[in-house]
Amino acid sequence: MSNKMPNIPSLDLGSVPLIELWRGDILESLHRGHAVVARDSGEIVESWGNADAVIYPRSSCKMVQALPLLETGAGRDLRPEQLALACASHQGAHSHVTRVASWLNDMGLSESDLRCGCQDPQDIAERDHLIKTGGTPCQLHNNCSGKHAGFLMLNRHLKGEAEYTLPDHPVQTTILNTFEEVTGTSSPGYGIDGCSAPNFATKLSALAYAMAQFASATDSGSSRSRAMFALREAMIQHPDLVAGETRACTDLMRAMGGRAAIKTGAEAVFVAILPEQRLGIALKIIDGGVRAAEAAITALLIRHGALDADHPVVQRFLGPLTSRRGLHAGHTCTAPGFA
């Protein structure tokens, strides 16, 4: 596959206002984007903006990238904690780093076998520990190190060469085949993600369709359905490993008490898997504003009955804004016509 894209329509084509931020009586910020809610039949339940906008899903599709790990049998003995890490964009906390290191050790591998690159930990306690002890960040701190541990396990099964992030490597071509099957459409190309792996572009509606399949998956269905079920349930059981303390993915999944799995992606992509409703959600804020993506997914989770509108966590993403002294300053809300 080439990374030279065909003529892709501009991302802002057909975008609509999704999230507003008001300070006092003035609209201070307005975030436009696209959002899709779909069933596993491919039916679009509702959408805003351009349902077929072509995007990079970035880390929101890690559960799709992890599917070959289970479908090939390479990860048949993995524990739910490891499956959650394979789908994670973690904080680089001690709990994340040690688990990934242990996983690599179990395979007879080490941090040097990873190809995701070093990253400063986002977890404050781990960052402070490194400073106090004179330690340095390593690839284990990379938010994608769990995904890459999964890549290494798949690579061992496929007997591939060491540079498993190359687009034409068996690991990545296997993932591409799975990605196109699950999204139901051919990817028009790829971009290189922050972790150096190819990230395959797709339509937003196709990404929502993929999430709906995860939502309807069961532990007694086809091999793909069982793999999807295992990954979905691992995320739901271990929200702390999927992201980390203070992160939207972790806090919202905890608030929903097992009713949904959600996953963010860089540049303001967000997806949700709603098993009770058998729905998949995908959204993209076109300015890349993470704050707006978190507000938009919160609104859609409430709209579709996965999140209680009165739960305290909601006000972190939608609701009043206060100054650092606690004074009322404004509010964040959905734009008219959205959710």
Rank of each mutant, 00 (worst) to 15 (best):
A206Y: 06
A206Q: 02
A206N: 02
A206R: 11
L207M: 06
L207H: 08
A208W: 14
A208Y: 14
Y209M: 10
M211C: 15
M211F: 14
M211W: 02
A212F: 04
Q213D: 01
Q213A: 04
F214A: 00
A215Y: 03
S216N: 00
A217K: 00
T218V: 12
T218D: 12
T218W: 11
T218M: 09
D219E: 15
S220E: 11
S220M: 02
G221S: 07
S222V: 01
S222W: 10
S223F: 09
S223H: 11
S223R: 15
S223E: 13
S223K: 13
R224V: 08
R224L: 13
R226A: 12
R226T: 12
A227H: 08
A227Q: 02
A227W: 00
M228C: 03
M228K: 07
A230V: 10
A230K: 11
L231Y: 07
L231F: 04
L231S: 07
R232A: 01
R232F: 08
R232H: 01
R232E: 01
R232S: 09
E233D: 11
E233L: 07
E233G: 05
E233W: 09
E233M: 04
A234Q: 03
I236Q: 05
Q237G: 05
H238Q: 08
P239E: 08
L241K: 06
V242S: 13
A243Y: 10
A243S: 09
A243L: 01
G244A: 09
E245Y: 11
T246N: 15
T246S: 13
T246W: 09
R247T: 09
A248M: 15
A248T: 13
A248D: 15
C249T: 12
C249G: 15
C249N: 14
C249F: 13
T250E: 10
T250H: 05
L252N: 10
M253E: 02
M253C: 00
R254V: 00
R254K: 14
A255I: 07
M256K: 03
M256T: 04
M256D: 07
G257N: 11
G258I: 09
R259I: 04
R259K: 04
A260S: 00
A260V: 03
A260L: 01
A261P: 05
I262N: 03
I262M: 12
I262V: 15
K263Y: 06
K263D: 09
K263M: 10
G265E: 10
G265L: 06
G265V: 07
E267A: 12
A268T: 05
A268P: 06
A268N: 06
A268E: 06
A268K: 08
V269S: 13
V269C: 15
F270V: 07
F270K: 06
V271T: 12
A272Q: 12
A272P: 14
A272F: 04
I273M: 05
I273E: 04
L274S: 10
L274M: 01
L274I: 04
E276M: 01
